[in-house]
Design a protein around this nucleic acid. Structure first.
Lengths: 235, 235
DNA sequence: TGTTTCTGCGATCGCTGTTCGCAGTATCGT
DNA sequence: ACGATACTGCGAACAGCGATCGCAGAAACA
C-alpha cells in the first residue's frame, strides 16, 4: 500500500467522487448541493450547517465529510449548481454588447433568486464547471475586441462585480419594503433620531421629501448602468 | 426600582456609554474599535474575535460585553471608525459630479486600506455618525438635481455599491499578484486543467495570450467607470 | 473465501458568541 | 459621614459550530 497522496489542497472538481471499492454512497455531490441550496434559499447562508444539511438529508451530523472536505467546498458546490439556471437562449441576436448584456441579465436573475449567492461571491469567487461555462460565454462576446487575454478576464471580473453590486442594491431596496428585520428597526430609529438633530441637513431633507414615484423600473436602470459602465470599461 | 427598559433592540449609537454610577470603565468604545480595526487590518475580519480583541486590550475574554451588546455592534463601531479617514478637502472645486467623484475616490481609498470593510458593507451597511456625515456630503452633491429624496438616497446607495465592487475587483487583482493563498493554488490548478480540456475555448485562449501590459491605471479606470455609471444612473 | 477499501455512525476536540454570578468600587442621596 | 445603589472587571460556564478519529459493517476485487 503506497502512501495515499494528500488529496487535500486539490480542488473538489478534480477529485473523483468515489474510487470503486466499498459500498455505494447514499448520495452524490449534487444532492448535497441541492439540499444546501434549499436551506440557504429558505433561511440564509448561515443556516447551511454541516449538521443541518446532514439532517435534511436524513444522515448523521458529520456524515457530509465523506463527500466534501470542508464546508467551503459544500458552498462551492452550491455556488456552481445555481449556474445551471442560466439560459443562453437569447444570445446571438445582436452585437457583442447585446449578448454581454443578456448574460449580465441572466446572472442578475440568479443572484436575485438566491441572495446568499452574493455573500459567496463576495468572499472570493469559487470556480466550478458551470461557472466556467458562463465565464466562457462572456469571454466569447469579447472575442473580436482588440484586447489582451488578461484584460478580457479582468473586464469580465469587473462586470461580475458590477452585476453583484447592483443585485445587492436591488435586494436591499426590496428588503426595506418588506417586514422589518429585528436589527433594522434599531437602525431606522437611529436614522430618524439623527435626521432630527439637524447635523445632517441633506439627509434630513432627503428623508422628508416623498418625491414622485420611482419613474424608472429596476430592469431599465440595470441595463443602463451596465451598458454605460461596460463602455467606460472597454472603450 | 422600576423595571429597566429593555435596552436591547436599540442601536448602540443611541445607547449612552455609561450611566454615571460605579467605577470608570477601563476603555471607551472608540478604543475597542481601534483594537478591532488593527486586528482586522492585520489578519482579516475573522480574526476579530471577542476574545482576541479583549486580549489585545489586556482584558478578560468576555469583558467586551460591558461595552457592546454583541459582536456585530463591535464591527459596527469599527465600520464607522474608519470613516474618520475620509478627507473632505477636495470638495467644492468643480461641479457636483466632480465632488461626487472625489467622495467616491475617498471611499475607495478607505476600502483599499481596510479590505475587511467590504465584507462588512456586503452584509447590510451599518450606519454610524461618521458614516452619516459621509452620506450627507454625497446627498449635498445631488441637492440641486431635480430628483425626489428617495431617488437621491437610492442613487447614493448604488454609488456605494459600485465603489465597493470596484474596490473588491482591485483587491482581487492585487491578491492574484501576491503570494498564493492556500486555496488559490487549488483553484488555479483546476483552472489550468479546465483550460486544457478544451471545453472552454475562449477561456483557454484568454489564459494563453499574455497580451500587452495593462494600458490604463486602476485610478483612471475607476474614475471612468464611476463617472459613466453615474451619468447612466442620474441622467 | 479472504483481503481490501470504502461506507455511515457516534464520540470528541477546539473554537466561537454569549450568559451569568461574584466580589469590588465609585458615585449618589441623605 | 455613611449606607444604598449601580456600575465595574473577572472567571466559569453553555450551546453551537467546523472538523477529526476510530469503529463496525458491507461491497468489490483477488
Amino acid at each position: 500500500m503506497v502512501e495515499q497522496s494528500e488529496q487535500s489542497e486539490v480542488s473538489i472538481w478534480l477529485r473523483p467522487a468515489r474510487s470503486g471499492r466499498g459500498p455505494a454512497p447514499a448520495f452524490d455531490r449534487d444532492r448535497l448541493a441541492e439540499a444546501g441550496v434549499a436551506l440557504a434559499d429558505a433561511q440564509g447562508l448561515a443556516a447551511v450547517t454541516m449538521r443541518a444539511v446532514a439532517q435534511s438529508l436524513g444522515s448523521a451530523p458529520a456524515s457530509l465529510y465523506r463527500y466534501v472536505a470542508t464546508r467551503d467546498e459544500l458552498v462551492e458546490l452550491m455556488s456552481d449548481r445555481v449556474n445551471a439556471e442560466i439560459s443562453y437562449a437569447y444570445l446571438g441576436a445582436g452585437d457583442w454588447l447585446d449578448d454581454l448584456l443578456a448574460l449580465a441579465r441572466e446572472a442578475r436573475a440568479v443572484c436575485l433568486r438566491h441572495p446568499w449567492l452574493l455573500d459567496v461571491l463576495a468572499a472570493g469567487a469559487p470556480v466550478g464547471p458551470r461557472t466556467l461555462a458562463y465565464l466562457d460565454r462572456c469571454l466569447a462576446c469579447l472575442a473580436e475586441l482588440p484586447l489582451g487575454g488578461k484584460e478580457k478576464l479582468e473586464a469580465v471580473a469587473v462586470l461580475q462585480s458590477l452585476v453583484a453590486s447592483l443585485a445587492r442594491a436591488e435586494l436591499a431596496k426590496e428588503l426595506d419594503a418588506a417586514e422589518p428585520p429585528p436589527w433594522r428597526r434599531a437602525r431606522d430609529a437611529y436614522l430618524r433620531h439623527a435626521a432630527a438633530t439637524g447635523d445632517y441637513p441633506h439627509l434630513t431633507a432627503a428623508l422628508k421629501s416623498a418625491g414622485p414615484p420611482g419613474s424608472k423600473s429596476a430592469d431599465e436602470l440595470f441595463d443602463r448602468i451596465i451598458t454605460r459602465a461596460l463602455r467606460g470599461l472597454l472603450a
